[in-house]
Amino acid sequence: MKNRLKVLRAERSWSQQDLADRLEVSRQSVNAIETGKYDPSLPLAFRIAETFDMSIEEIFSKD
């Protein structure tokens, strides 16, 4: 699964730790999701979408 986390973070000048704090997960989790090593669960994907005030489909897409 591809995602736009890195771009969306950069647009807001958030570090991985900033986003991790907002999502209440570890920085390693954000890094793993951002680099495509880990696909988040649906609840976490919803939290990510809410954090960016976007829909899941606007952030994540199939390969």
Binding site: Q28, S29, Y38
Partner: peptide
């Protein structure tokens, strides 16, 4: 552990 990635 609440963090799903770390738990995995």
């Amino acid at each position: 552990t609440q963090d799903e990635f770390i738990r995995m």
